[in-house]
Nucleic acid binder design. Structure first.
Lengths: 230, 230
DNA sequence: GTATGATTCAAACGAACGTTTGAACAGGAT
DNA sequence: ATCCTGTTCAAACGTTCGTTTGAATCATAC
């Protein structure tokens, strides 16, 4: 059934990428073999090495294909908000909505495989594989820097280290919300469908609540002391 | 060097478990071979199958050894708080502190491998491997139910589904905070050490801010409508 | 029609995997 | 001294892995 899917269709590269994306999400990188990928895609075993060179190169291409678009959209959303306010600092809610709204929009796109990819991406942030982590970090470097700068300007009184941590927490919450719904289902049986449309407002409320939470006492104290000393 | 570690020491089982725990954290389950584990532990290749039966059974035992203690401590922390207030509902902050405080305490224990395990556990919540997820869900079922019940009582006006989601978000934020510090380091170069002592207040502020955030409009509206209809 | 370059194919490669085997070794109890 | 039970050991098992190979097939240009 599954390997008979789209037996024709000339674009071998795209079929391999789609099959690999879905299988990586379901089984992980190591547990997904070339034979699983090629049979699911309906192509010859050697096709992956011919078109991509190696399994590692295929993994990279699976991510690059989507991340290029995703991060372009995120930057576009941020710049659109910045254009509205001119040179003034953005509201934190606008920055958070730009970053995570684009993410959730792709996660809601079940038509073109965006949902599959976002679930894969969510679990890949904690991927042990060194080269995958390295690659992800490179792909994200610019976008994260731009968003962090926007947050620094939006919250000039909050220590930068604190903003960094909270952005990290937000990334974690989002990734689990997208990638870990299975875990949640198992936590509680009385849990109905996972409509991504309703996920967006839920997550956004939570993230903004966390971002705007009062600073931990320890940080406030150490800052006060530091100010006194200066 | 590493495989020469503790060449003596009679407790073969414990040495295997320690080696497996560390290697699973660094490389993942699939990428960690029996030969890596046994050579790191300084035992014979067949020792794993002799003492545990199979690689899958070893994985289970790695988790059970720690999770039993972790979840017992979490329940104890919750019951201690409940004892203080008698039969009255707990404050949400106390519930959250009981659950995540115990987690972070283990994550801060670098002496007995607790830190290693918590990082492993964090990435395992999104583990693709079906049997690992199933096992984790079983181990967690009781504890999560007890904490959810406490939260339901603490927040009687918040829809249960909403609490469930926010608990899920909180789990994600914590897991990334513990397991994904590498990703954060790569996000921003200017990031100093990861002192777990300071992580605790940071994370707790964020989690409570998210938990207590105003409900998304959509939820409030739908509840109002439902009330009107009823 | 035939030459050319890109793609597909069946088959095989060596390496690494998890697991099994049967002998060797240990230490107490009889 | 002998047996017994639990443990360790070197070696091998069959399977699957990612990759390579060289011929077959296709499309396009001459």
């Amino acid at each position: 059934m599954s390997e008979a899917t789209a037996k024709q269709g000339p674009d071998t590269r795209a079929r391999i990428l789609d099959a690999a994306e879905a299988l990586f999400m379901t089984h992980g990188f190591e547990a997904t073999s070339m034979r699983m990928i090629t049979s699911q895609a309906g192509v010859n075993l050697a096709a992956v090495n011919y078109h991509f060179g190696s399994k590692d190169a295929l993994i990279q291409e699976v991510f690059r294909r989507r991340l290029t678009e995703l991060n372009r959209d995120r930057l576009a959303a941020l710049e659109a908000e910045e254009a509205v306010v001119g040179g003034a600092p953005l509201k934190p809610s606008k920055i958070v909505a730009a970053f995570f709204g684009v993410s959730l929009k792709m996660a809601a796109d079940t038509e073109h495989g965006g949902a599959t990819f976002m679930r894969l991406l969510g679990r890949t942030y904690t991927e042990p594989n060194e080269f995958v982590r390295q690659f992800l970090a490179e792909e994200y470097a610019e976008v994260v820097q731009r968003f962090m700068d926007a947050l620094y300007r939006a919250l000039p009184d909050v220590p930068r280290e604190e903003i960094l941590w909270r952005f990290h927490f937000m990334m974690g919450a989002m990734s689990y919300a997208i990638a870990g719904t299975d875990a949640l289902k198992l936590f509680a049986g009385d849990f109905d469908d996972e409509d991504p449309t309703r996920l967006m407002p839920r997550l956004m409320s939570f993230l903004l609540g966390g971002l705007r939470a009062p600073l931990p006492e320890e940080v406030i104290e150490s800052r006060t002391i530091r100010r006194d000393a200066a």
